[in-house]
Amino acid sequence: MRSRGAGTRTQLTKLEELLRELRVEEVMTRRLVSVSGDFTMAQVKELLRKHRISGVPVLEGEALVGVVSIEDVTRALEQGEMGAKVRDRMSREVITVFADEPAVEAVKRFAHTKVGRLPVLDRGGKVVGILTPGDPVGRAFRVMDLRYREQEQQRWQQKGLGLEDLLGEGASLVLRFRVQGEDFAGAGKASVQAKRVLGRLGLDPGAVRRATIAAYEAEMNLIIHTRGGELTLEATPHSVVVEAVDKGPGIVDVEQALQPGFSTAPEWVCEMGFGAGMGLNNIQSCADEFEIESEVGRGTRVRAVVHLSQSGRKDRLNR
């Protein structure tokens, strides 16, 4: 498998490059859990359990004075000294890394010292974060993945391929999502996913943006107002058609529902930044064609068509 070996090598080189390029502060964890020397070992045990971590830096004021880890806790437990103060049980020789050093320096330090964590200092000596051994490489892979996706998208756009080239004239691509009523936690996932797919196909980014904003508002409406329904996006060489269909409760007065600011959304929705009565208006203003039909007790169907710009991939970002 020569080709595969070569691929792995290329990826390793890229990873090394990236670890040199990224700085420690870009791969570290910033949400810092720390203790003071006055904590008891029992308190440390609780803290480690609660945050599911294996060690914490010990600070006096802003100064780093030591590290206390799960091993120290275990030893105290065995010796029946869980009431002992952290300052008497911590390791005082702390290996650290500076925030502006390349991430690869942290990787080296982990390899050479076998410590389980590295407190990260700024040049003033203040602790600004912490690193565990998996952080630098894990983070670098994520960055690599993102960049790959972006490049892939650019390649599509540069080739100037349209959907016709992919599917053949007359064919279309349909994305269909089931949307659960009141599933606020998952809200928007379908539309974000749709944007990713349509974007990767290299369709006109401005049109994709308008279509998926319309899809998002429609998705929110399904979640806020209905028992659930179906959201579809159909991409053809000339347009993206967004359709949301539900089985009720239906809209009493469609004219009124289309008025900006008119809302029947419950309070819990408003507290989360929605329900301002702009959803249908946003769909309308994103769409080149818009239809809505609703019957109380039967359900609602919203259809929005966004035309792809004639020049193919020419951007029409400002609608």
Partner: peptide, 24 residues
């Protein structure tokens, strides 16, 4: 803080400042 306002008015490439820390 009103996400519909963001969708209605923010232009692509903008920075969003908000107090809404929800995944939305």
């Amino acid at each position: 803080d009103l996400m519909s306002d963001v969708l209605a008015s923010a232009r692509p490439g903008s920075l969003l400042l908000t107090g809404l820390t929800h995944p939305q």
